[in-house]
Design a protein around this nucleic acid. Structure first.
Lengths: 250, 250
DNA sequence: TTAATTTTGATCAAAAATAATCAATACTGA
DNA sequence: TCAGTATTGATTATTTTTGATCAAAATTAA
């Protein structure tokens, strides 16, 4: 087996295993540790993996992602919500994925599905680009570097050109009184466009945002088909009484 | 059997087998290893397969390599062309950047400029995302994972919504007889859209592609305002006589 | 901290693959 | 037809790759 073939296999193995030792790789590739070390050195130099003492780690596509770990607050909560949301997705679905850390977490659980994803989020793009069963449609428009997402009028037009079975969105605030609210105008216009063009709208929202309101009020509660959240409370109940279908993860 | 026939069979075999050794190919094509090596060398130079020690691999593994270092052909040549091209860009310009390795090299030389970039190339996006003085407009549409670029009808529509001062494009072939040619239909429609919507069209093209023709003929020589290349030759002269403004880098 | 263990990088020889050279053959165009 | 060119396969010298060995460096345990 030659270097290119090994390189391909090493990267594929790392993509699954997150991190592997030199010896594990040597066994997988049927090559000597010396060869694996040379390979890892070369591949690391290209910046495609992270060399560690004794092995290698998967290199997150740092340029485009960069945001997923910083949101590490209550990550396991977000993960549970995301997993629950992903379970609503079936093979053949066309889905909108909003930018936002909770929606991003869905990627992990979507990788085995055969779907089409329409998104304005670069981290989602980076995460799903190597999944053969997922076709990606990237929303075009102005790049918001801070949020690593596409925004603007052109992006809204782009979304209006499509209809998806389901939209998975996030918000900054959600309450029975004010419906869905966001920090920024830009993001809210995108989310509004998703809502308008999707058959079902799933709102991913951890408990900390429920009952709170943010700056821009952009959609009524009735726009949501299902709220996916992590814990029940009287605030959640207030939403239920307004006719929101609530799914509590775990 | 002649070279063209073998080339076709080699690519077909590789498409199925992912990777093959020189000896396997020699057996399939009933030719000597020496001939196969010569063939593989030529085909690899065209960028249609990846030469490995002992054989060749299907090109798609570029997906993993990130494409910019490619088969490292004449990288310094590309750099010189790119630097020359970048020197045509002024602060305040709005420019289209095509996907393709030579155009990609321009990024290095653009980082100090205050410009707006409209592109369908993800490597360019990744390279420029952290440059504060550059605003990026990403073209939306279907993601071509292999080329790490956006293609399709939606992308063309997106481009049609803008006008840029300059477009920097690449081709797979360029000749006085057949004008601009490309390997794939998808890419050529995007490039055509860039040409249509730009004030000036700069074609970045190293000498190896001049005088050669590829599969899809998509634009006349007259579409180009300036050809930026690395060395002069009688083939370049033939283009000059057709009225192409030629800039030779270095 | 020091001692024990692991990992690494360098070096080297064997094996494999390649590029270069050359003669034989096939093709080309006058 | 025939000279000139291009292509092919064989041979050989060179280069690349590989696995093994071992001292140095890094990590872990005490």
């Amino acid at each position: 087996m030659n270097f290119q073939e090994r390189k391909k296999k090493i990267l594929a193995a790392l993509d699954q295993a997150e991190s592997l030792s030199v010896f594990e790789l040597a066994e997988i590739l049927v090559a000597s540790p010396a060869t694996i070390r040379r390979d890892l050195g070369d591949i690391a130099e290209e910046g495609l993996l992270l060399r560690t003492h004794g092995g290698a780690m998967k290199m997150e596509n740092q340029v485009l992602t960069g945001f997923q770990e910083k949101s590490g607050v209550n990550n396991s909560t977000k993960e549970r919500i995301a997993e629950n949301a992903a379970s609503c997705v079936q093979d053949g679905d066309i889905i909108f994925l909003d930018c936002g850390s909770t929606v991003f977490q869905m990627c992990r659980f979507l990788k085995k599905k055969s779907i089409r994803v329409i998104t304005n989020s670069l981290p989602i793009l980076a995460e799903l680009i190597d999944v053969p069963s997922i076709q990606i449609n990237l929303i075009g428009g102005e790049l918001n570097k801070a949020r690593k997402a596409i925004h603007g009028e052109k992006a809204v037009q782009h979304i209006n050109g499509y209809h998806a079975h389901k939209a998975f969105i996030g918000v900054d605030g959600l309450s029975a009184e004010n419906g869905l609210t966001a920090h920024s105008e830009h993001e809210s216009t995108i989310t509004t466009a998703f809502i308008r063009n999707a058959g079902q709208v799933m709102l991913l929202c951890d408990a900390s945002k429920i009952g709170k309101d943010s700056y821009v009020k952009f959609a009524e509660l009735s726009a949501i088909h299902t709220l996916i959240t992590d814990s029940d409370s009287e605030k959640v109940d207030a939403l239920r009484q307004q006719g929101v279908n609530v799914e509590v993860a775990e």
